[in-house]
């Protein structure tokens, strides 16, 4: 998390978010502006403030949308994303033992391997969006895909 690194990281909640991590995600999605964090406007964070401004540039404040891309050409259906995704783990117990989830898929399920390739099913349930106040820094699917087929981005 590039952005998180430059925030005060004090979790003071002045921005109205529970943690700096939560704030950084909203910042990434363009839901808030750097200036919405009162402490960072203080002189002692001047350098970090400038750095953040520079990173976000002109896109600051423009609402962005989460995308998770699964590259069909790279994916070989190993099913690691199916097992590691915490949402899958919660709603499809067989996946905890590395087993393929039931078909048709559960309505919260995010990944399913069909025809030897991974399919992204219900992006709206991804932890990064559907968090109910918890930190939303999840990116294990992207981290562990051995083919580097998964890319999380905001566009």
């Amino acid at each position: 998390m590039e952005i998180y690194k430059w925030l005060p990281k004090t979790n003071c909640k002045e921005c109205g978010k529970p943690t700096c991590m939560a704030f950084s995600l909203d910042l990434l999605q363009g839901k808030v502006k750097v200036d919405d964090c009162p402490p960072i406007l203080k002189p002692k964070y001047k350098k970090q403030y400038e750095k953040l401004k520079e990173m976000l540039g002109s896109e600051e404040g423009q609402q962005k949308e989460l995308r998770i891309n699964v590259d069909e050409d790279l994916c070989d259906g190993c099913g690691i994303c199916v097992t590691v995704c915490p949402v899958n783990a919660r709603y499809c117990p067989p996946s905890l033992s590395g087993k393929a989830p039931e078909y048709p898929p559960e309505k919260h399920q995010l990944f399913q391997v069909i025809g030897g390739k991974c399919e992204l099913l219900n992006l709206e349930h991804c932890r990064r969006l559907d968090s109910e106040g918890r930190e939303r820094e999840c990116h294990v699917c992207e981290t562990y895909c051995p083919r580097e087929a998964i890319k999380i981005e905001y566009v």
Binding site: D76, G77, C78, A100, Y103, V113, I114, G115, G116, K117
Partner: peptide, 24 residues
Amino acid sequence: CDDIIVKSDGLFIDKIIGACLKGK
């Protein structure tokens, strides 16, 4: 892997769920 879901009409296979690419 003993967890492959196969949708078939007995003549052809139309869907394979759970198998990796090599399995497919």
